[in-house]
């Protein structure tokens, strides 16, 4: 894998660098910010993609710890430290490995504030990477955000570009509730505009990345870039596609969604996770409830095929939602 400085041109940066910058800044601001996870320290090359590179050298091995391969113990330790006032950033290398520590995340991190009647809370950020495209098959590239969004008490954040990754990461670290921060691995080295230093992007607020009056396309994480590409293509046909990047999957910005769809009367929801029981279903329901009778077409959803991520390249390509599928869904709601 590449390192933090590989592909970006001057005046751009990639998500690896952006998250690294945010962590560096957060650690500089608050001694309670600690980083723990498998291979995160510099002796182990600062994470499998180099996201935490330099941090252990700068802030010391006490605050930036490479751990044993022990996901339950990693998240448990992060929770314990968090409830007494630290702000741990724990890395669960790949999203599929969260399955090994679901108890800690779902039964504990998410619920301690409520179950303790507000006496304790868990200001913990869990960083995790995922996304199909590298041929890693059924246990290394799932999008599982709906599981966590279905759990009250944990926020789910999924940036679509480097600048957002920076601003959202800073907000997660300093948020007083647990946050799951999802990084798309295949897009790690895609360059983007640099962020404004020190500026945090609020959690729970969506971002309109393309304006348009005909259809609202709602997405999050890497696939927002495909939504933008479709919007730009259709703009040439004078079809106005408004692209709404949720930034925070849960709790999501219902107001922004309803404002946009209230205007366009047509909505397409796009995510890389499989379609059934996904985030799209929740958003579609909220739209239907608020805008019933005003919609010009039923809400469309675009997601991955309903199966484990397949290994074989042609199958993997067919599994991930494509720009063609997004475009087709837009045309369907325009009919």
């Amino acid at each position: 894998m590449s390192t933090a400085t590989s592909t970006a041109k001057p005046n751009t940066l990639n998500t690896v660098q952006a998250v690294n910058m945010a962590l560096d800044e957060a650690m500089g601001l608050d001694p309670n910010v600690i980083v723990l996870g498998e291979d995160v320290a510099d002796e182990q090359e600062g994470g499998i993609a180099g996201v935490t590179k330099g941090l252990s050298t700068k802030y010391g091995k006490s605050r930036v710890r490479s751990t044993p391969i022990s996901e339950q113990a990693i998240i448990g330790a992060a929770i314990g430290a968090a409830i007494v006032g630290m702000r741990p950033v724990a890395e669960i290398m790949l999203m599929n490995f969260t399955t090994v520590c679901m108890d800690m995340i779902v039964n504990h991190a998410a619920k301690l504030r409520f179950m303790s009647g507000g006496q304790t809370h868990v200001p913990l950020t869990i960083r995790t990477m995922t996304g199909a495209g590298f041929g890693t098959g059924g246990q290394h590239s799932d999008y599982l955000e709906a599981w966590f969004a279905h759990t009250a008490g944990i926020k789910v954040v999924a940036p679509s570009c480097p600048a957002d990754a920076y601003g959202l990461m800073l907000s997660c670290v300093f948020d007083d509730d647990p946050c799951l921060f999802i990084e798309n691995m295949p897009a790690y080295w895609a360059p983007g505009a640099p962020p404004e230093k020190g500026v945090r992007i609020p959690l729970g607020k969506a971002n309109i990345v393309r304006s348009g009056g005909d259809v609202t396309v709602i997405g999050y994480s890497r696939i927002v870039s495909d939504c933008i590409a479709v919007a730009d293509k259709l703009a040439k046909e004078k079809i106005g596609v408004e692209v709404l990047d949720l930034r925070t999957v849960s709790p999501f910005d219902e107001e922004a969604i309803l404002n946009s769809v209230g205007k366009t009367r047509r909505a397409v929801i796009v995510h890389e996770a499989v379609t059934p029981f996904g985030v799209g279903a929740e958003i579609a329901t909220r739209i239907n409830k608020a805008l019933f009778g005003k919609l010009a077409a039923p809400v469309e959803r675009v997601g991955a095929s309903y199966c484990p991520v397949p290994f074989s390249k042609p199958l993997e390509t067919a599994f991930v939602p494509s720009q063609a599928q997004i475009e087709a869904a837009v045309r369907t709601v325009l009919k």
Binding site: G135, T136, G137, G138, Q139, H140, P310, F311, S312, K313, P314, L315
Partner: peptide, 16 residues
């Protein structure tokens, strides 16, 4: 190689 003639029809890959 991810081929239909593989042990798992190419659906599992080297890790599965």
């Amino acid at each position: 190689a991810g081929k239909a003639t593989g042990t798992c029809k190419g659906k599992g890959g080297p890790m599965h």
